[in-house]
Every structure is written in C-alpha cells, then in structure tokens.
C-alpha cells in the first residue's frame, strides 16, 4: 500500500459517502444518474466474486464490503425509497446503459489474462467501470446546473481515478513485474472521461462561481 493508492481509495470512499449523505439526509437524488449507479453496482458485484475465496487483507475485505453495500443501497434508495425516488430526474436519465455491457463482455471474453469465469468477470468489471460514468456525464450536460454535493461527488470520483494512475506509476517503478495493461488502458480512458468535468470544476472554483457546464 502506497500513499497514492490510499489517497485513491479514500477519495473513492469519500465520493460514496458524499452521495449517501446527499441521499440520506437531504432525501434527494436530484442530478444523480440511476443508470450510472446501477452500472457501478454491477461493476462491484462482478469484480468481487473472489470476496470469500481470495483473501488479500482485512482492509481490502472491508472496503469491498463497503463498496458493494453502498452501491446497492444507493440503487435501492433511488428506485424504492418513498421520498428519494420522487427527486429522481428520470426524463434526463435516458442513457441505454445496459447496451454498454455487451461490448465490455465481448471484450472481456477476448482480451483477458486468463480464460476462467472469475477472471473474465473481473476483466468485464474493469472495462465496465471505465465507461460507467457516461450516463452521469450525459445527465450533467443536460441539466447543466449542478448542486454542490453532486459536483463534489463527481470530483471525488475523478480524483480517485487520478490517484490510481499515480499509484500504478509508483508501483511500476518500485515492484518487479508489475505490468497490468488491461487495468492501465481502461483506467486511463476512465480518467480522461473526467477531464472535461475537471476543467469546468476548477474554473468555477477559481472564479468562485456556481458550477455550470456549457450547453
């Protein structure tokens, strides 16, 4: 565990907590894409199939449980919670997200490290995570007005990705045989998707004005 990996995990954790805070205390999921949240739940489900068979550390196990539990409870809140679901902006969240899964699955079947069910599902989760933010970004672009918590949520998610790249660079130079083409390519693509958002986030922060995306 290096400082970049820890910073990445902590910003990831913070992003989830910010979103849960918004949903749980304000009882609102305005501006949040259910499609993206459903994709994240599928990402964690398919990635952590080895939760009980491959022990890495207590830290890893607890974090996996947190990400699984939080992603499914967020989906539950938006779909089922009596108050929260009324704030869900269904008309702005029209991305056909399940169609994103097919290319990821096909790619995972052909491009993987080892052709076993667990390994293909893990690879699928890496590809799917890379593009899971797309419905959320489309929704942001449509609503344009972004409340503070939604902005912070997406900023923290992007920060998590950026820290993971620094973590890989660090590990590449400090560990022997640390080459992970699949995670690296998917991870860099994923991080680039946040680039545009980051630009406008920092602009609004620098000029101290409300975050608003251009039409």
């Amino acid at each position: 565990m290096n400082i970049f990996r820890l910073a990445g995990d902590m910003t990831h954790l913070a992003s989830v907590l910010v979103l849960l805070l918004k949903i749980h205390t304000i009882k609102s999921c305005a501006g949040i894409s259910l499609k993206t949240q459903e994709l994240f739940a599928i990402v964690f489900l398919t990635r952590y199939l080895d939760l009980f068979t491959n022990f890495i550390s207590i830290y890893n196990t607890i974090m996996k449980l947190i990400f699984l539990g939080s992603s499914f409870s967020i989906v539950w809140y938006i779909r089922r919670h009596r108050v929260v679901r009324r704030s869900y902006d269904k008309d702005q969240d029209t991305f056909r997200h399940f169609f994103l899964m097919w290319p990821c699955l096909i790619l995972a079947i052909f491009i993987n490290e080892k052709f076993t069910l667990k390994e293909v599902m893990w690879t699928f989760s890496i590809y799917l995570e890379a593009i899971a933010i797309l419905p959320q970004l489309v929704m942001l672009q449509r609503t344009r007005n972004i409340d503070n918590l939604t902005g912070q949520y997406i900023f923290l998610l992007g920060a998590y990705r950026a820290f993971y790249i620094l973590n890989w660079i660090y590990r590449y130079f400090t560990e022997e045989h640390y080459v992970h083409w699949i995670t690296w390519v998917a991870g860099v693509i994923q991080t680039l998707l946040y680039g545009d958002f980051f630009y406008y986030y920092f602009q609004s922060w620098k000029n101290n004005v409300k975050l608003e995306l251009p039409a």
Binding site: H12, D50, E113, K114, E119, H177
Partner: peptide
C-alpha cells in the same frame, strides 16, 4: 508475472 492475477487493488 507474479503480481498479475493477485487483484490486490479495489
């Protein structure tokens, strides 16, 4: 490579 399939990241 040894680290390849460890999946020690989250």
């Amino acid at each position: 490579a040894k680290a390849h399939l460890d999946h020690d990241e989250l």
